[in-house]
Design a protein around this nucleic acid. Structure first.
Length: 217
DNA sequence: AAGTTCCA
DNA sequence: CGAA
């Protein structure tokens, strides 16, 4: 597995950064969608507010989460699962807005994954100090579909590891509008986010919102 | 188990 | 709200 990382200094905004064979960073790909995304985000969190999930080990996650789409990812003491019902509201998750779907499909196609039809979008809210430790996305039934991850707001340092938790992870800075796509042979690679530094974004304030699109069923 | 802490 |  090669990790041909460009030096950060060499990156231009529209330059694609190859992480590996089937993983890529699309710099600022989401920028044209942001004006339409933000009002939809507001509506989603009104219906299904951000909450801090608990892992099966009993730990409260520092990242606050909500979801949209036919299925949403949740965790509690019993384990991880996808559910059609938001356990907090008792109702279905908010529908996936068209602009979310359009962005996810366009990014997937740009990365070489045509026909991506996500049925779940996990929405993570990071504040300074918040992190997400190294993990695999393996609760989905279809590993043929890629993962599409959209970064909004303040920067974060993304960790992209290997197929073993102990594999050394590449560090990739992610900024507002960046989209990471991974699938194929890289679909189950460990990934995470280092604790966020204090920062301010003109549109989103002192927070980072991450949209992660998956085909769960 | 998507977390925390300790140790070499 | 249980033991992977």
């Amino acid at each position: 597995m090669t990790l041909d990382l460009f030096d950060t200094e060499e990156l231009s905004d529209n330059r694609q950064q190859q992480l590996a064979q089937d993983a890529v960073v699309l710099r600022a790909f989401a920028t044209p969608y942001v004006a339409q995304l933000l009002p939809q985000l507001e509506a989603i969190q009104q219906a299904s507010p951000f909450r801090h999930l608990v892992t099966p080990g009993g730990f409260r996650m520092s990242v606050a989460m909500t979801c949209c789409g036919a299925l949403g990812w949740t965790s509690d003491r019993r384990g991880y699962r996808y559910s059609a019902i938001d356990p907090d509201s008792g109702r279905r998750w908010p529908a996936m807005p068209d602009v979310f779907l359009q962005l996810a499909q366009a990014a997937a196609a740009q990365a070489g994954f045509d026909g991506f039809l996500p049925d779940a979008c996990l929405i993570n809210r990071y504040q300074p100090g918040t992190r997400l430790s190294l993990h695999q996305d393996k609760d989905e039934q279809d590993y043929d579909a890629p993962i599409v991850s959209v970064s909004l707001g303040i920067p974060a340092m993304f960790l992209f590891g290997g197929h073993e938790r102990s594999d050394k992870a590449a560090r990739v800075p992610l900024f507002h509008g960046d989209v990471v796509v991974w699938g194929g042979v890289d679909r189950l690679r460990y990934h995470g986010v280092l604790p966020l530094k204090e920062a301010e974004h003109p549109l989103l304030g002192g927070q980072r919102i991450n949209l992660t699109f998956r085909k769960a069923a």
